[in-house]
Amino acid sequence: MQEKIQQCIHAIGQQIKGKDAQIELALICLLSKGHLLLEDLPGMGKTTLSQCLSAVLNMQYARMQFTSDLLPADMLGVNIYEPDTHKFNFHAGPIFNQVLLADEINRASPKTQSALLEAMAESRVSIDGKSYDLPEPFFVIATQNPLFQSGTYPLPESQIDRFTMKLSLGFPSKEAERAMLLSESQSHEVTEVLTASELIELQESVSQVVVSEPVVDYILSLVNASRDSQEYPNALSPRATKAIYHCAQACAFVNDRNFVIPEDVQFIFSAVTEHRLRGQDQFAASTTLLSQSLLDKVNPMAA
């Protein structure tokens, strides 16, 4: 199974050059049944990444461009009166897909945002008193522009907490960009590697990965360090702790191990916690990552 994951990473790597770490993290997020938030400037490959992911995993894919006038019904679907049958029929919205790309999520109004986040948390939607299960696996990739850009509604802390990971792709390196340009002429079809049912199986195996007592201690002391110190305006929530735990398991799994080591925790830690720690009002804050300072504080070999 692990080879397939490596194949996935390789296949996506063909499309997005020089971003293997981010691709791996995105896969880890997927394997731990989490949702992904991509934050970057326009044109950095956010959409490409999400498209590639769904293509490689052979999942139904829908893309929604979030705008300020988008309403929840546009996303969830709506009951429409059918004059022929005199009945209301439910027309499913784009959310009824296995992979939903919510592009520029912070351009939509809070009302629409919260509708999406509710669906993410519960894996089902309720419309006119009737609830509909979302397909499985259900994976939301949201992208957002950095907050200093105009026309954005920042996601509140309570809602951003629901994203398991937040990734930034960043500018590619010179070599990667050169490779990108040179390979432009050849059209690369992304080959599918996994099926949806295989993905569910993988997610199941991830939850079997052993997390030993010392690693649990390490995770807890990291989390507690954020709570004990005044440096962090938003301490890590228990949901964050769970997210770290599951992502570490997935990370070990991707690296072909059946037990978690502290390196796994460190690898996923910034992606999982940075957006939770920072909150939204500190976008202009210093360039040093808060999550990195947490990692520096805690000795992984202490337990």
Partner: peptide, 10 residues
């Protein structure tokens, strides 16, 4: 010297 945040492997 081992840095505080370093694991044994690193």
């Amino acid at each position: 010297r081992k840095e505080n945040s370093e694991t044994l492997q690193q």
